[in-house]
Design a protein around this nucleic acid. Structure first.
Length: 466
RNA sequence: GACCCUUUCGUCUAGCGGUUAGGACAUCGCCCUUUCACGGCGAGAGCACGGGUUCGAUUCCCGUAGGGGUCGCCA
C-alpha cells in the first residue's frame, strides 16, 4: 500500500455537532428545526449529537424553558448522545457550571495579549479587524468584513461571560467539528472565527441554514404566530413524526417529489446538497395535512390510545383546546363513553386531534342544538318528520341491533315511503347528532344502541319542524 | 442606513443551457357516496425586472427591485 492510497483511505473522524439553546422562553420551531438538522447530520454520518444549555444569562433563564427544551426534543425523537441527563466526557453541559473552564481560557487569551479591560471591569477581545472569507457548507463563500467592527465584550463587569466567548470555548472543549445553525448567526461566526484563531484552534466547519418565516407577514417567526412553539403541537395532540416530517421539508427536499418520508429514509438521504439557501414560510395548513397523513398510517388501536392519552393529558396553556368550555362540557361524558369503538369511527374524519372534540360531542351528547345551516336544509324537506317516524317504527321492531339490521330497518322505511334509502340518511343524521356532517352513521347508531337512537329521534323530530 | 443572504404557482418545492416548467398544500369543478370527509379525475395559478454570455436562457454573469437577516456588557 503506497502513501497516497493510505492518505485517501484515511477515514475522517465522525462529526460532532451540537444544539445549544438558551432556556429563556419556549422551544421555537426554528430552533427545533436547527436541532433536527444537526441530529440528522450526526445520525447520517455516525457522529455525535451534543446538547448544551447556554444559560449564562441567569436573569433570563427559567426552569420551565429548560423543561420545554427537553420535552420538545424528546417529543420529536431527537435524542442527544451527550448532554444533560445523558452524560458524556465533555461535561458539564450547562454553561452555568463551567465557570472554571472559562476563567482558564480567558487567562490564555489575556496572556496572549488578546484582551483588555474597561474601566468598569468589562473585558473586551482585541479584534484583528480583518476581512474573513467564510467557507460556508450551505451558503458557499461569504464575505464578513470585520475591519470596522468594534471589539466585542467577552466578560461582563460582574464576571459573567458573554455568548461569543463561551460558545467558542465550549465548541473547542466539546470538540465540535460542524456548526449547523441559523443564518441569523452569520455575523457572529465572524467573531467566533477570530476567537478560534486567537486560541490557535482551527474553527469548525460552518453551515448556516436559512430561517423559518411567519406564515402571515413573512418576517422571522415570532412568539405571536400560532404554531411557533413546539409546545403548541404537543398541546394539540399532533403526532411527533408528522411535525418532524414537516420540519424536514422546510429547507430540505429529497428531490423526488416524496413528502411523507420515514425518518430513517431522511437520515439516509440528508445532505447539504439537498438544503435550500433561501428562507421558507411556515405553512400550518400543510403541517395539519401532514398530521392527517400520519394519522391514516396509524392502526385503530394506536389512534385510540393516543386520542385517549390526549383527552386525559395535562393542559399545557391557554392555547390548549382542552382548556375551552366545550371541552369542559364534554369531559364528564368521557368516563362512561365507549371510546374504543367510537374513536376508530372518528379517525378517518380528522387531520388533527382537536377535531375529535366536535365528533365526540356529536356522539356523546344527544341534546346538542340543531345547527342553523342544517335547519335551513332540513326545513326544505317537509316530509322529514314522516321519514323519522317511519324509521323509528322499523327500528323499534328490530330484534338484533347491529349495522346490518339497522340498514334493513332503513330499507324497510324507504320502501314504505317509496323513497331511496339514501334520502332518509340526512334527516336521520340530523336527528341523531344535530349536525349535517360527521362519522359514518350506521356504525354510530350501532354504538349508541337501540334505545338511545330511538330516544334521540323522538326528542329531535319536533325540533326539526319548529 | 451599512453589510450579508435570498428570489420558480398564494405557500413548500423539483429543475442544475434545449422540458407541453413537474409534485405537494390550499382553492375551484366533476365523479364516487347516505350528508360531511376520504378517495379518484380535472382546472386555474409560477420562472421579479433590465442588461449581457450563448445558436438557445428558468438555468451562467452583472445591475435594479422585492423579501429576510445582522448591526448588544441577549443568546
Amino acid at each position: 500500500m503506497d502513501t497516497v492510497t493510505q492518505l485517501s483511505a484515511m477515514p475522517t473522524p465522525p462529526p460532532r455537532v451540537r444544539f445549544a439553546p438558551s432556556p429563556t422562553g419556549y422551544l421555537h420551531v426554528g430552533g427545533a428545526r436547527t436541532a433536527l438538522f444537526n441530529w440528522l447530520y450526526a445520525r447520517k454520518n455516525g457522529g455525535t449529537f451534543v446538547l448544551r444549555i447556554e444559560d449564562t444569562d441567569a436573569a433570563r433563564n427559567t426552569p420551565q424553558a429548560l423543561a420545554a427544551i427537553f420535552d420538545g426534543l424528546r417529543w420529536l425523537g431527537l435524542d442527544w448522545d451527550e448532554g444533560p441527563e445523558a452524560g458524556g466526557d465533555c461535561g458539564p453541559y450547562f454553561q452555568s457550571q463551567r465557570q472554571a473552564i472559562y476563567d482558564e481560557y480567558l487567562k490564555r487569551l489575556t496572556e496572549g495579549g488578546h484582551t483588555y479591560t474597561e474601566e468598569n471591569g468589562a473585558v473586551r477581545f482585541r479584534s484583528p479587524k480583518e476581512v474573513i472569507m467564510l467557507q460556508d457548507e450551505i451558503g458557499g463563500e461569504i464575505k464578513i468584513d470585520r475591519t470596522n467592527e468594534p471589539d466585542m465584550t467577552i466578560r461582563r463587569p460582574d464576571g459573567g461571560y458573554i455568548f461569543h466567548f463561551v460558545n467558542v470555548v465550549d465548541d473547542i472543549e466539546m470538540k465540535i467539528s460542524h456548526v449547523i445553525r441559523g443564518e441569523d448567526h452569520i455575523f457572529n461566526t465572524g467573531k467566533h472565527i477570530e476567537l478560534f484563531q486567537a486560541f490557535g484552534v482551527t474553527p469548525p466547519v460552518y453551515g448556516h441554514i436559512p430561517l423559518i418565516l411567519n406564515q402571515e407577514d413573512g418576517s422571522k417567526m415570532s412568539k405571536r404566530s400560532a404554531g411557533a412553539s413546539v409546545g403548541y403541537y404537543i398541546a394539540n395532540g399532533y403526532l411527533p413524526e408528522a411535525v418532524r416530517n414537516y420540519l424536514c421539508l422546510l429547507g430540505w427536499s429529497p428531490k423526488d417529489d416524496r413528502e411523507v418520508i420515514p425518518i430513517d429514509e431522511v437520515q439516509r438521504l440528508f445532505d447539504r446538497d439537498h438544503l435550500n439557501h433561501h428562507n421558507a414560510r411556515f405553512d400550518l395548513e400543510k403541517c395539519r395535512w401532514m398530521n392527517g397523513e400520519y394519522l391514516k398510517l396509524q392502526s385503530d388501536a394506536d389512534f385510540a390510545a393516543s386520542a385517549k392519552a390526549w383527552l386525559h393529558g395535562p393542559q399545557a396553556s391557554e392555547l390548549d383546546p382542552r382548556a375551552t368550555p366545550e371541552f369542559a362540557a364534554l369531559k364528564p361524558l368521557l368516563s362512561a363513553a365507549p371510546l374504543d369503538v367510537l374513536l376508530p369511527l372518528i379517525k378517518p374524519k380528522i387531520k388533527v386531534m382537536p377535531e375529535i372534540l366536535e365528533h365526540l360531542t356529536m356522539g356523546l351528547n344527544g341534546t346538542v342544538p340543531i345547527a342553523d345551516d342544517v335547519r335551513a336544509k332540513i326545513s326544505a324537506q317537509p316530509d322529514a318528520a314522516a321519514k323519522l317516524t317511519s324509521l323509528t317504527g322499523h327500528f323499534d321492531a328490530l330484534v338484533h341491533w347491529n349495522r346490518e339490521h339497522i340498514q334493513d330497518g332503513v330499507n324497510l322505511a324507504a320502501a314504505e315511503l317509496k323513497v331511496k334509502p339514501g334520502a332518509l340518511m340526512f334527516p336521520l343524521r340530523v336527528a341523531i347528532t344535530g349536525q349535517g356532517h360527521g362519522v359514518d352513521l350506521l356504525p354510530l347508531l350501532e354504538i349508541l344502541g337501540k334505545a338511545e337512537t330511538i330516544a334521540r329521534i323522538r326528542a329531535r323530530t319536533p325540533l326539526l319542524t319548529a
